[in-house]
Simulated scan of single mutants.
Amino acid sequence: MIGIMVSVTVVKFLLMVYCRRFKNEIVRAYAQDHFFDVITNSVGLVAAVLAIRYLWWIDPVGAMMISLYTISTWARTVMENVRSLIGRTAPPDFISKLTYCIWNHHEDIQHIDTVRAYTFGSYYFVEIDIVLPQYTLLQKAHNIGETLQEKLEQLPVVERAFVHIDFEYTHRPEHKSNRV
Rank of each mutant, 00 (worst) to 15 (best):
T99V: 10
W57Q: 11
G44K: 08
L98T: 02
T99Y: 12
W103H: 14
L85F: 11
E80S: 13
I95E: 01
R53N: 09
P92M: 08
L98V: 07
M65R: 01
I86W: 00
S42A: 14
T89P: 05
T77E: 14
I102R: 02
V49K: 05
G87T: 13
M79I: 12
T40R: 06
I86Q: 03
G87I: 12
L68T: 03
L55K: 03
S96G: 12
S96W: 00
C101A: 14
L85W: 06
D59Q: 13
I52H: 09
A47C: 04
A51G: 04
S42V: 10
V61E: 04
N104M: 12
C101Y: 00
W103P: 06
L50I: 02
T89I: 11
I58A: 02
G62C: 05
V78P: 06
G62T: 01
S72D: 07
H106F: 05
T89Y: 00
S67H: 00
T70V: 02
M79W: 12
A90M: 02
A51K: 02
Y54I: 03
V61R: 06
P92L: 12
T70P: 01
P60I: 08
G87Q: 13
V49G: 00
I95V: 15
I58M: 04
M64T: 12
N81E: 09
I102H: 08
T73I: 01
F94N: 08
Y100K: 15
W56A: 15
P92E: 11
A63N: 04
A47L: 03
I52W: 10
A47Q: 03
T40L: 04
I86L: 13
I102D: 04
A63V: 08
W57K: 00
N104H: 14
Y54M: 07
G62F: 03
V43F: 00
K97E: 10
P92I: 07
S42Y: 01
V49T: 06
I58Q: 00
R53K: 14
L68Q: 02
Y69P: 02
I52C: 00
K97S: 11
G44D: 05
H106W: 03
A48V: 10
N41R: 05
L68H: 03
R76C: 05
N41T: 13
M79C: 09
W103Y: 13
G44R: 09
Y100E: 15
T89L: 15
V46N: 02
S96H: 09
Y69N: 07
T40M: 10
V82T: 05
V78T: 10
S67Y: 00
C101G: 03
S84L: 11
T89Q: 14
T70L: 07
Y69H: 07
